[in-house]
Every structure is written in C-alpha cells, then in structure tokens.
Design a binder for these strands. Structure first.
Length: 515
DNA sequence: GTAGGGTTAG
C-alpha cells in the first residue's frame, strides 16, 4: 500500500514521485544572507515549523487536485513530525491538516484520510496535539466516506459529530446528508435533512441529486418544487434526473423553464446533462441550437467535455458530417482521449470502419494511449463496417501491445463481427473462450442472432442451451430459436419450443417503432 | 482554508 510505505519511509517524499516539490523556506536549510553569503541566523523552531506548514499549505492550495502533491505533503508531514511537538494549539497546523483531508475527500481517498486522522488523534503525530479538530475536519472526513459504498465509518462519524455539538452546523449536517444518500441510504439522509434546523441551497441540492441518482425522481421533483431558492445546480440535478429516467422531453422542458422563468444561465454541467436528452429525441434542430449556445457563451472552447459531448450529440442525431467538422475544428492540443474516442464511436455508429481506423491511427501518432473504451468503439466500427480482419488484428493489438484486459463487451463485439460475416465457427469459438467470470447471456444472444440470420440450426440450439442455463425469462430468445426451427422446416421442434416458452412464462413485449 | 451537479461504450 502506498500510504504505509510512505509512513515507514524516512524520505520526506514518496519513492514514486518524479520530482520533489520545492517548498520555501526549506525546513533545515540555513538561509544565506544575499549580500555577504554568510549563514543567516536560524529562525526559532516554532517559527520555522510554522513557515513550513504555511509552505505546504499553499502548495496544497495551488495543486489541490493533484493526488501526487497530497501524498508528498502527507509524507513530509509524517517525516518531519510537523503536526507533532509540544506546541500549544496552532491554527496553521489545523489548517494544513484540514487542507490535506480536503484533498483526500476530493480525490476520494478515504483510507488516506482516515489514517491521517487516526495518527493525529492517537498522538503519534501530535504528542500533545497541535492540531485541533473542527467542523472542517468532520465535513471533509464525511466526504471521504463517499465512495466507500458502506455507511459504517460514516455512522460512527455521525455519532461523533452529535457528541461534539455539530447537530445544527449546516456544513457538517449537509455533509452527513450527502454521505448517506451517496452511499445509498436515502432514508437516513432524509432523516438528517428533516432534523436540520437550518438548511441552505446546497443541503437541498445534495438531497435532490441523491434521490435522482437512486431513481427516486418523483420525490426529488417535489423537493425541487418545495425548495425556497433554486440554483443552477438544483436545476441541473433535476434535469439530469429526467434525462437518466429516459424522459427527455420533460428534461428539455425544464431546461427552457430554467432559462425563461428563473433567468438562470445553464452551466457547463447543465449542458452536459441536457445533451443526452437531445440525443434521445434526436432533433437536429435542438442539437444545432445547443451548439450555437455553446459557441456564444464560450463553453465549446473553454470546456473540452462540452466539446466532446457535442461530437457525440451530432453523431447520435444522425449528423456524422457535422460531428466530424466540429471535431476537426478542435485544435489538436485540446483534443484528449475522450475526443478521439467520441469521433471513433461516431464513425462506428455510422458503419464507417475505415474512417474509424484512420482516426485511431491519427490518435496514436498524436501520442495518446487508447483505453478499453477506445478499443470497444473501434471494434464496433469494424463490426458495423464489416471489416473482420482489421477487427481481429485490433483485438490482438489491444491485448498484446496495449496489455488491456478485454471486457465482456469486447468479446461481444468480436462475436457480432464474426457472426455478421457468417464466420459462425470462429464466433462460437470466441463465445466459448470468454472467461467464465465475465461471461453473460448477451454474448450467446448475439451468437444466436447470427445463427438465426445464417440458418445454422445446430449451433443455434447450442447457443439457446447456454442462454437458458443463465436466464429463462426473456421471450426474445425463444422467438429467435422458434424462427430458426421454422426456417429449417422443423415445425415439431418449433412447437415444442413454444410450449417450453409458455411453461417458463416468458413474455415477449411486442416490438414497436418510434419512427 | 468548507459542502452540491461532471465528457467517450451501452
């Protein structure tokens, strides 16, 4: 574990760090007078320590988002015993300690946060504690708990904060609501919320976002209507809820309402939230006006995520040329891996395998390293474009050159690609070779589809067997298999299957077109 | 020196 090696290390910086960050003034370096070159009088110990604390603190502020810097500062704190000693309570020490916790909370590193807290609390870092815990400490610790996926440490902190008298502290209580709902304990979060004597918009937003995240859209909506002051975050959260629940028209309606009724300007995040809703309704006109708005307000050029999402949006609205044109307008320096993956996936959607391959090559030349998502997009492009040999070659490259472990979807794409091309034996071989831990029904369903298309009855039976081993309730499988039997003239088998389907009480939802 | 919404696959 990186943290433990840090603790044991005598070196102030973690071994993995590429370079040690320069902090002025350095702790044990003697200053030289600039005029004479003679050593200056060393600062008193306390002042020297405070200077170092300040240096580390401002370093954290400047590089707040960097995990490497946080770990380095942590290492420095441990190695130099900075939070230790017989000082009376020092505000700088507390400041530094909290800032470090904040970094861990933002970076979702609960373990590091708790170890730091424990060390200070137990006194191994603070002989008579120069650090005093305050509301900030508990806010950050609670935020660190998010992502643990369990509320146990959070519940303990909850008790502790009550004991310490933070029961009406808005920040601490809001952090509690956040911790509970983010960990899935929506009811507990609601209880804390209900008991709060004072709330602010963030408190409401935290609860609303948590509710939409867990699909409780109606409850979120009523809170949204009830809240006294709605900010852009509130609107974004509720819009996102509708988008996720596949209710794009309501999402777009709310977006318009936000701008016209409340006069609130959408943020970058609001744009990111509304794009999938626009893609869902597939309106080129709305897509274009979203593009224009982004240009006007500057999001398209200031935030690469907005630009990337626009590529995807154009593509999903059927405008591959606009997607391509917009992509090309982004300067190479701004394009990141997601930009390239988005355009490759756009080509994939439109069956343009050659273009996807060219895009991939250009990306590689530009020095970007593809990930699993990039490869999945490329494979899908080859599958939809019928470029089987290229697909197999890229799969091999993904595993051997880039050392990426294929996921179920990569195998699924291969099966689809081989199956479409009628190379059923190879497709079945891939399906059989999928590691057991990640094998799923989709792989076999894909193969069954290909068998049905190419009329291979025996293989279709084998695929159906595999599907039924895993899942029995999906009527589509029976229908496909029925068609295979019927197509081969094996009407008795077809009838037997239909009875089997009735027994399994599988139901097939009748197909319908949205167009 | 606090807290909240986050781009690509499907």
């Amino acid at each position: 574990m990186r943290f433990l090696s840090l603790l044991c290390s005598t070196s102030p910086a973690p071994a993995r760090a590429k370079r040690t960050l320069e902090i002025a003034p350095a702790p044990f370096r003697r200053r030289r007078s600039s005029s004479t070159g003679a050593p200056a009088v060393p600062l008193p110990r306390e002042r020297r320590r405070e200077a170092l604390q300040n240096g580390l603190f401002s370093l954290l502020r400047r590089h707040g988002g960097s995990r490497r810097v946080a770990l380095q500062v942590h290492g420095r704190v441990v190695a130099s015993g900075l939070l230790l000693r017989d000082l009376s309570s020092s505000s700088t020490a507390t400041l530094l300690f909290n800032a470090l916790l904040r970094c861990y909370a933002l970076d979702r590193l609960p373990l590091e946060a708790f170890l730091l807290y424990k060390d200070v609390q137990s006194g191994s870092l603070s002989a008579s504690s120069s650090v005093s815990f305050n509301s900030f400490t508990y806010t950050f610790l609670l935020n660190s708990c998010v992502g643990l996926g369990c509320t146990v440490p959070g519940v303990q902190l909850h008790g502790l904060t009550l004991k310490l008298g933070f029961e009406s502290h808005v920040y601490v209580q809001t952090a509690l609501v956040y911790m509970y709902v983010a960990c899935g304990s929506v009811g507990e979060g609601g209880k804390v919320f209900d008991c709060m004597p004072v709330r602010n918009p963030v408190t409401w937003n935290v609860l609303i976002s948590g509710l939409t995240k867990w699909g409780r859209l109606d409850l979120a909506r009523s809170l949204f209507e009830e809240m006294p002051v709605r900010t852009v975050v509130s609107w974004t959260a509720i819009i996102d809820g509708y988008t996720r629940m596949n209710r794009p028209n309501e999402a777009i309606h709310l977006f318009r309402k936000m701008v016209t009724d409340d006069g609130i300007a959408p943020s970058e995040i609001t744009m990111l939230t509304i794009f999938p809703a626009i893609a869902n309704i597939g309106s080129v006109k709305v897509c274009q006006s979203a593009h224009c708005y982004g240009e006007k307000i500057g999001f398209n050029s200031s935030d690469i995520r907005v630009a990337n999402s626009l590529i995807d949006l154009y593509s999903k609205c059927g405008c591959i040329m606009s997607a391509w044109k917009f992509f090309e307008e982004i300067t190479d320096a701004r394009k990141n891996l997601v930009s390239w993956t988005s355009i490759i996936s756009a080509f994939a959607m439109h069956g343009m395998g050659e273009e996807a391959a060219q895009g991939f090559d250009r990306m590689e030349i530009g020095g970007l390293k593809p990930n699993q998502v990039t490869f999945l997009s490329v494979l899908n492009a080859f599958s939809h474009g019928g470029l089987v040999e290229e697909g197999l070659r890229f799969f091999e490259r993904m595993v051997n050159v880039y050392q990426l472990v294929p996921e179920t979807k990569h195998y699924g794409s291969l099966v689809d690609m081989l199956g479409r091309a009628g190379r059923l034996k190879e497709a079945e071989k891939v399906a059989v070779e999928v590691p057991r831990e990640i094998a799923n029904v989709v792989i076999w369903r894909t193969l069954l589809g290909a068998c049905s298309f190419h009329g291979d009855v025996e293989m279709a039976e084998r695929a159906t067997e595999r599907i039924l081993e895993i899942e029995r309730g999906y009527g589509g499988d029976y229908v496909l298999m029925y068609n295979v039997f019927a197509g081969a003239g094996r009407f008795n088998d077809a009838e037997r299957l239909r009875q089997l389907m009735d027994q399994a009480t599988a139901s097939k939802v009748p197909g319908h077109s949205l167009v």
